Simulated scan of single mutants.
Amino acid sequence: MNGHIMQPALNLETIKVACSNCNLRELCMPVGFNVDEMKRLDEVVEKRRRVKQGELLFNSGDTFTSLYAIRTGFFKTCVTSEDGREQVTGFQMAGEIIGMDGIVSDRHNCNAVALEDAEVCVMPFATVEDLSRELPALQRHVHKIMSREIVRENSVMMLLGNMRAEERLAAFLLNLLQRLHARGLSQSELVLRMTREEIGSYLGLKLETVSRAFSKFSEDGIIEVKQRYVKVLEPDALKKIFNPQTY
């Protein structure tokens, strides 16, 4: 974001990507299609686009044309307040679809920034809409993704409104682990692609508060922290902090 943003045309590849051959298809696309339906689904993906760390996938105010399935890498979405402060609104990883914020007004209302070198599959929304009319399973899947976004936003509002700092951080770590586990990764280890400051922005906490919460978890033997590497030693303790009434 510091003047290193390349123009989109330089990032576009013409290599065709087949959803049917992608190991993430069960995460970002519906399952249960027959061979012919999978061929039709492959038509949704127009091309791949590479996004370097720190570059924008799309900017607030850009015309909305496509959804993006994250193939590799990690993104953050954020908005900028009138006084220039950045508010992180979400973190997205491989297998997730990004860009739905633009559907409502035909323009994106947030920035999507790569937190590491990433690659996305570009899916023109007009094509998605056309094919959804023919394939009810795809239409249901798109509705599920939109619904999940609404649920996620409601969960964040609950985090910001009712939870103490340690509860917010516990919920954040548990959510990341659950999403990574769905991708076949470890249930107890993760590398944070975002900074402590970005975590604080997302959770509505100051940087110092986030650092103190990490230190408290580490001192209590709940997690082991080495810079951005986090290992959860006591997952039940983390769950108890997040949801004490169930214990």
Rank of each mutant, 00 (worst) to 15 (best):
R50P: 01
V45F: 12
V113Q: 10
S60P: 12
I150T: 05
L67Y: 10
F64G: 08
M29S: 02
F242H: 06
G102V: 03
R107W: 06
A165R: 04
Q92H: 14
L67N: 09
S20T: 01
S186R: 08
R85M: 12
V232A: 00
A94P: 03
C110Q: 14
R71H: 15
L67D: 07
L203I: 04
I241V: 08
S188T: 15
H181K: 14
A182H: 09
I222R: 01
Q7Y: 04
M194S: 08
E153N: 10
L160T: 06
V225P: 04
R140T: 03
S105V: 11
L57E: 07
M100K: 10
E119I: 01
A94V: 02
R183V: 11
R168E: 04
D117M: 06
F58C: 09
P235Q: 11
H143Y: 11
M93R: 15
G95W: 01
S211H: 05
N111W: 12
D220W: 10
E26A: 11
T14C: 03
G32P: 04
S155F: 08
P8L: 00
R71E: 14
T14Y: 08
C22T: 07
D106P: 04
V210F: 02
D83P: 07
G73F: 01
R179E: 11
R228Q: 14
V225C: 12
R49H: 11
T14K: 06
I223V: 10
M1W: 08
Q7F: 07
I98D: 04
V44L: 13
I150K: 04
G161W: 03
D117H: 07
I145H: 02
G61D: 11
C78T: 15
R48C: 12
E37Q: 09
R148W: 08
L205E: 01
R107H: 14
A170H: 01
R179Y: 03
D62G: 11
V225Q: 15
L177P: 04
E208N: 11
V120N: 01
R164T: 03
N175A: 15
